[in-house]
């Protein structure tokens, strides 16, 4: 419970600190809105078409593989903490788990999901 007091304090002041900067700036900085100034920046030329375009699927392939490994990483943390007590049993069990993951990783590699195309 005591830990959360600190986290809440940091969260609260973490928000307050940048907010203070922005409020201070509001009093100090000029405010001269201008339709040209508020256009989207694109190296001095007018923007063409819409910004929110389609993206290539290669991003999703990485994200999918990542998801699996990220869950694995969280699973590994408690195992690593208790590793000294688990001894041989823990080692073998985790090797089986890692081997299964590696099969998936090898499959993704073989299928060229890890190729930036």
């Amino acid at each position: 419970m005591g830990d959360y007091v600190y986290l809440v304090f940091f969260l609260f002041f973490g928000v307050l600190f940048p907010l203070g900067g922005i409020v201070t700036e509001r009093f100090l900085s000029p405010k001269k809105p201008d339709p040209i100034k508020e256009t989207t920046y694109e190296c001095g030329i007018e923007t063409e078409g819409t910004t929110w375009v389609q993206f290539h699927t290669r991003y999703y392939l990485y994200a999918l593989v990542f998801l699996i490994f990220d869950v694995e990483a969280i699973f590994l943390f408690p195992w690593a903490v208790a590793y000294n007590q688990l001894a041989l049993f823990g080692f073998i069990e985790m090797m089986i788990f890692l081997a299964i993951l590696l099969v998936g990783f090898a499959y993704a590699w073989r299928k060229r999901a890890l190729e930036w195309r």
Binding site: V15, P18, L19, G21, I22, T24, E25, R26, L28, S29, P30, K31, K32, P33, P35, K37, E38, T39, T40, Y41
Partner: peptide, 21 residues
Amino acid sequence: LLKEDFTPATADRRLFQLAPF
């Protein structure tokens, strides 16, 4: 601190201002 802080007209105003936090 003395520079104007403006939001582009076509930007998603609220999200744009929330993001730095």
